[in-house]
Simulated assay, not measured.
Amino acid sequence: MLQVLKSLRLTQPTRFASALSSTATNIPSGSADVSAVDSGEPDKLYSKLEIELRGIDPAVLRSYTWFATTAAEHLGIELGKCWSPRKAHHERMTLLKSVHIYKKHRVQYEIRTHFRYMNFHKLTGSTLDTFLEYIERNLPEGVALQAAKTELQQLPAHLQQPPEQV
């Protein structure tokens, strides 16, 4: 791989990208796949991206929210509402210390899950994919991310024309 990178000139970015893709997949450069950008298909539009973050440490969630909003600003994504509930979700389990007897000797375990919600508005499909991949790759340990996107679509042809007059 290093030999390929050393032999390429940086003044020819198309040759550089095709050489990387052909060496990574062991496919000849003549049969490389055409990307979705060159296919002529219009990019999808999304009105909203809702992200839910779950974690056990609220400070980590706050820090990651700052990271995601900063990344969105650099990509030119419109930031919506970012909020978190005041209280964490508590889950308690009570177990017996002993295996068979001594029912009065118990131990309690508690898990607190903190939530954080972020909304982003007016995204294109390529920007959304790039943004989601970037923030998923930088997700800290102990944090779960759930994303829901709302796509904009055209009205069907039978609904676009006004109804005939009766």
Rank of each mutant, 00 (worst) to 15 (best):
E133L: 06
K122R: 12
M118K: 01
N138S: 10
P42W: 08
E136Y: 03
K81G: 01
Q153V: 12
Y102S: 08
R54P: 00
K103D: 13
H121S: 00
A19I: 09
L79C: 08
T65F: 07
L20M: 14
R112M: 15
I111H: 02
Q154C: 10
K81Q: 10
K103T: 13
E73C: 06
T11K: 04
V166F: 09
V166K: 06
T25M: 05
K81I: 12
N119S: 11
V37N: 00
S31W: 09
K122L: 13
L159V: 09
A148C: 09
E136V: 12
G76R: 05
K104I: 14
T150S: 04
T14G: 00
A71I: 07
K149Q: 07
S35W: 07
S29M: 15
P13R: 02
V143M: 00
V60T: 13
T127E: 04
V99A: 04
I27T: 12
A59P: 00
G80N: 01
E151T: 08
I111D: 03
L8F: 05
S7D: 13
E41M: 03
R9Q: 13
N138P: 01
P140R: 01
L155Y: 11
G125Y: 04
L10P: 01
H158N: 08
S35H: 05
Y109L: 14
